[in-house]
C-alpha cells in the first residue's frame, strides 16, 4: 500500500493510521449513526454475532440428515422451511425463501448470483470471497464446467449441468450426492464429508478415502 505523503486522501490509499479510505469512511458513518441515536454499538455488535453464528457446519448437518433419512430428504426437497424447522432452524421468520436442489447421477447443480452475491447464508454463513468475485459471477453461467474443473471437479458429459442464477427472491442450497463407501458412517461422520463448496455445487462431497489421505 502507498502512503499518502501529500496529505491528500484518495480512495484505496492508506491514511496515517494504516486504515484504507473506505475503512475510515465506514467508521465515521457508524460513529455518526451512534451519536445521533439512529442505532447503538450494541445493536451492531449483536448483528455481527448473528452473522457469525451461521457456518457451513449448519448446512452439512442438514445434508447428512437428508442422506440417512429418506423421509426428511423428501420433505427438504419439496418444502424446505418446515423440514429445516424439524432440525431446529427457524427460517420461517426470514423473508428470503430457500430451495434445496439435489445432485444425482444424472444432474449436477451449480449456484451463482450474477447480479450481486445472493447466497443461502442462513445455512452456510458468509459466502467465500470467490463466490462474490467478478470472475466467478461471469464464468459460472457461461462456462460452468470449466469453473468446476478449476475446483477439481470433472462432471461427466452424460451428466446434465444445471446452473442456478439466484438473482431474485430465492436462495439455493445444493444437496450433494452421498459418496460411495459411506454406508457404515454415522450422521456426524457423514457431516464431515459435506463441505461448503459441495453445497454451492463447485465440488462433490468428500469421499472417506480423500478424508483419510488429507488427515
Amino acid at each position: 500500500m502507498t502512503e499518502a505523503h501529500d496529505g491528500h486522501q484518495h480512495p484505496g490509499i492508506d491514511g496515517d493510521d494504516g486504515q484504507t479510505y473506505y475503512a475510515r469512511r465506514a467508521q465515521a458513518i457508524e460513529a455518526l449513526l451512534v451519536a445521533k441515536g439512529i442505532c447503538t454499538t450494541g445493536e451492531v455488535q449483536l448483528a455481527m454475532e448473528q452473522v457469525e453464528a451461521r457456518s457451513p457446519a449448519d448446512g452439512a448437518r442438514v445434508v447428512a440428515h437428508a442422506w440417512v433419512d429418506a423421509g426428511f430428504k423428501t420433505r427438504l426437497l419439496s418444502d424446505p422451511i418446515p423440514a429445516l424447522a424439524e432440525l431446529g432452524y427457524a427460517l420461517a421468520e426470514t423473508t428470503t425463501q430457500l430451495e434445496v436442489v439435489e445432485n444425482t447421477d444424472e444432474v449436477h447443480h451449480l449456484v451463482v448470483c450474477t447480479l450481486c452475491s445472493c447466497y443461502p447464508s442462513t445455512l452456510l454463513g458468509r459466502p467465500p470471497d470467490w463466490y462474490k468475485s467478478l470472475a466467478y459471477r461471469s464464468r459460472a453461467v457461461a462456462d460452468p464446467r470449466g469453473v468446476m474443473r478449476e475446483f477439481g471437479l470433472n462432471v461427466a458429459e452424460e451428466v446434465k449441468v444445471r446452473v442456478l442464477d439466484s438473482t431474485a427472491d430465492l436462495r439455493y442450497l445444493v444437496l450433494p450426492r452421498r459418496p460411495a463407501g459411506t454406508e457404515g458412517l454415522s450422521e456426524e461422520e457423514l457431516a464431515k464429508l459435506v463441505t461448503r463448496d459441495c453445497m454451492i455445487g463447485v465440488t462433490d462431497a468428500l469421499s472417506p478415502v480423500s478424508m483419510a489421505s488429507s488427515a
Binding site: Q27, E30, M48, W130, A135, R137, S138, V147, E150
Partner: peptide, 29 residues
C-alpha cells in the same frame, strides 16, 4: 454489476481473506 454479460477467461481466485473488523461492522450496520 450484471456480470453474466461481461465475459472473461480470468481464473477464479480461491484465496479467502480474513474479514477486517470494519468489513464485519459495515455488514452489521
Amino acid at each position: 454489476h450484471d456480470r453474466g454479460s461481461w465475459p472473461t477467461d480470468e481464473p477464479i481466485d480461491r484465496d479467502e481473506h480474513p474479514h477486517a473488523d470494519w468489513e464485519l461492522r459495515v455488514h452489521a450496520l
